[in-house]
Design a protein around this nucleic acid. Structure first.
Lengths: 254, 254
DNA sequence: GAAAGTAATTCCGCACTGCGGAAAGATATG
DNA sequence: CATATCTTTCCGCAGTGCGGAATTACTTTC
């Protein structure tokens, strides 16, 4: 796109940009809105949505004139889940965790400078953070991201952390907060974040190693209903305990 | 592709074909294998995988030389799940269902002539059918598909059923079995399938209406360990009961 | 209910993208 | 080390996909 890469297929990137835009919006969008969101010409968007709808990735929503993602999009992610043995082992633990605390419990894995939630067990508490499989957050603002990062082998941690910092600055943020969070997580083996992504939302996470890569057990919390002390206390204890059962907390300690 | 549609963007379709091939294979594939699977020229595949890896949808697996899907693919499906209110209500019921029977319990929605599993609660039985969110089956061979179809408004059911039949014949199958299954489901309000998709695998499903569309509560079973009588008996009863709580079983009876 | 306004789609000429055969480069194999 | 196999890059050319403009389809307003 930006660079002169004779190997790069533009049309494909544009088509996927449409799907991403729909995913980000979390609601049906019209061709016009899509054109704006992707800075493509309306006629181009029209052709792409037309193609995607023939392929079955989008369809006109009832509120006609807008396109929405179809369930077919779920299938592309399916093998990612199906191949994870850690997920099988983690599932019952997440269930326990959620039952014991009433909170939502989730398993997250890294994907570049993001984390993706691969399993979510909904909590029973009245005020629960809404989350579903496939949810995605920048590493910098998620407890799970910090936790995963903290357990990576030194070398890898450094390169990923650098990319994260670069991303923060590029968006005009301050990397110091991230640095502090990471340092604290490395030292304590647990990551606690409050109000970093959105006000009122936070999380706590511990790393677990599985499938040759680092994942994180995490509990998202509404910061309005749970004090930092409560997080550091009982919640942290339960999480640590659960992680213990699942395996070593640092990469390479098989 | 086949037809002369001046509006159809080929490159996009080809790129998605790569992702689909990887999804179907459920394991990393080399460019050569992808070329064979998609009947594209190797050089074309190379360019597409190159593009997809820059975009972050595939990456080289450890077993270098082969590409695998990244978790980023999960995000495209995320909004599909996040927007379903039925899912929220169904989740605790699925949990109950699974605990009561020990079997895996799932919620499925229709997508063209396929069903996609949008939530799966793993059972505790020793022999469990492996299934994850995003799994996909043709309507014709899945209990969930038959159940959903059976609860559709007459008009819609007829058109979809016709497409399903067309698909069956196109693949050299016999639509009669499907017709019988559908008729039986329409009459009894419950669908039972055994060994239709793969030998040893079957399922039982009841329709539920939610989000303006029909979904299905389903329990996949290993036909080797559960007799048809058991399915028709206690399993069916529990399913019916659960569906009752979730709402009306036929579209339009709000 | 016509008219004006807005948004989506289709048309179409042209630039240049992406295609695919062939060559070059990498890796595995005996 | 030679050979076979597979992958990536190169490159000329066909024809795809681009985007401005025209057309068509909706929606809104009075």
């Amino acid at each position: 796109m930006a660079q002169e890469d004779r190997q790069f297929v533009d049309a494909l990137a544009r088509g996927l940009a449409i799907l991403e835009a729909l995913s980000r919006a979390q609601k049906p969008l019209s061709n016009g809105e899509l054109a704006r969101a992707t800075s493509l010409a309306p006629s181009t968007v029209s052709r792409l949505t037309h193609t995607l709808s023939i392929l079955g990735y989008v369809r006109l929503s009832q509120t006609s004139r807008t396109y929405e993602l179809t369930p077919k999009n779920l299938t592309l992610g399916y093998p990612v889940l199906a191949g994870m043995s850690l997920l099988e082992r983690a599932r019952p633990r997440l269930k326990q965790l959620s039952e014991k605390t009433g909170e939502t419990a989730a398993l997250a894995i890294r994907d570049g400078i993001h984390v993706t939630f691969v399993e979510v067990i909904q909590g029973s508490n009245m005020v629960a953070v809404r989350l579903a499989t496939g949810g995605r957050l920048p590493i910098a603002v998620s407890a799970a991201g910090i936790a995963i990062l903290s357990a990576l082998p030194d070398r890898e941690r450094r390169t990923v952390a650098a990319r994260v910092r670069a991303d923060i600055t590029r968006r005009g943020g301050n990397p110091d907060i991230f640095n502090r969070h990471l340092a604290s997580a490395c030292q304590q083996g647990i990551a606690i974040i409050r109000d970093a992504w959105r006000p009122g939302i936070g999380g706590i996470a511990v790393p677990v190693v599985g499938d040759g890569d680092v994942a994180a057990l995490t509990v998202p919390v509404a910061t309005g209903s749970i004090t930092e002390a409560a997080m550091r206390g009982s919640l942290a204890a339960v999480l640590r305990e659960t992680a213990e059962v699942l395996g070593p907390a640092r990469a390479g300690e098989a």
